[in-house]
Nucleic acid binder design. Sequence first.
DNA 1: ATCACATTATCGATAATCAATAATTTTTCG
DNA 2: CGAAAAATTATTGATTATCGATAATGTGAT
Lengths: 224, 224
Amino acid sequence: MLGILTLRGPSMPVQKASVRDQIRRTLTERILAGHYQPGDRLIELQIARELGTSQGSVREALRELEASRLVESEPHRGTRVRVVSLCEMREAYQMRGLLEQAAAITAAKAFKGSVGSLRDEVQAVLRAAEVGDFGEQAAHVYAFHRAVVGASGNGVLLRLWESLAFETRVRVRLGWGPIDPKQVAASYEAILTALEEGNGRVAGRLLREHSGKFAPVSDQLDAD
Amino acid sequence: MLGILTLRGPSMPVQKASVRDQIRRTLTERILAGHYQPGDRLIELQIARELGTSQGSVREALRELEASRLVESEPHRGTRVRVVSLCEMREAYQMRGLLEQAAAITAAKAFKGSVGSLRDEVQAVLRAAEVGDFGEQAAHVYAFHRAVVGASGNGVLLRLWESLAFETRVRVRLGWGPIDPKQVAASYEAILTALEEGNGRVAGRLLREHSGKFAPVSDQLDAD
DNA sequence: ATCACATTATCGATAATCAATAATTTTTCG
DNA sequence: CGAAAAATTATTGATTATCGATAATGTGAT
């Protein structure tokens, strides 16, 4: 039993690995990695037997995934990987832009003069793009934006932003074509400069525009 | 058993009343109504026995409440009603303002010339305020803002906004003092006028300012 | 072909049970 | 007495087995 619980690095302190969390993590990985495709059914007992757990634990994990909108379920019809529509993705990108713009306003204070860690992420993005490692690329893009939003110091803002993670991450897997590294570099460079100067207003605007570049529709909500 | 399932209005169509949902609804009501105070423990078997359900169903309901951030839990230490800090509430109000501003930009198109339903809600708010019925007042305030956000036509935006419901609703129960009806009326009247004219830009700005009036801290994120 | 009916897979839910852990109480001993 | 140690209790985390309800599928009769 407990085929999942095998992993636990040697240097890991006392990580509580509840069965429920392990299941959730495993399923999340599989969904984000594309092992389970959108629309695929997730059958409780099947998963339970595969992972060596009980049906109840799987149910709980599925409820959590449903809450974070990775899956959806109908009564007596089971749970399946959620299908994110193009429309919803556009909306999510709009919102991400809006939130990041707001985040930048205050985050700029934190980054003024020290954008080293951010620059590292951008470098990593470009390196990954050259090699063609989309997973790595997406991870560093995520890390960059998350760092900015996190630096805003607004926990609620961060939570809202993170709740968009699924919608804005599927994009990569849909393969809307490779990104021009030059364009990306230029865009990020401008943002970095603004942050370094502590100019949150400009950084925010640039981040919002950046978000717009990756969503194929005009941004209707721009208040400026 | 199933002491909860009694209710089901005569005109109700075919409402699926899963046990889990019933538990969730019951607990949500009790939390919002203040029957359970912030910090109170929610003991699984206790609730299960009281409602005549199994422990498992209560667990699932609690996981859902945790996802919507009404409660929080630590391993082996149980689940309790979440305590929303003043800081978090301020952040939530900031975010609510940001989202509503964005919503107004597009919602204005939908309301141009026909703000009747919105005006009704404002009237209801003032009426409730006169009578001193805070519950009713809060409900209509909620309905007004929700209508605006809903009219934006952006589902993701609506979802984000609704996820702030808890944080921005506790406020009423904390009783930050009664609100001056005149001030409220004037504020809403200006918003209505802007929406009626289809001027989303102005309506958005007013909504954001409105939100600021109810949060006791200067709004740092205003990009305009 | 299509409708009615049976079959099957799966979900929704329950009960009974057990180990692990946290909180509480009691005991022991300096 | 008062603090450390030990025992007790309450509750969670998780399992197994089981049942009825429901949706999907298959099958046969007309």
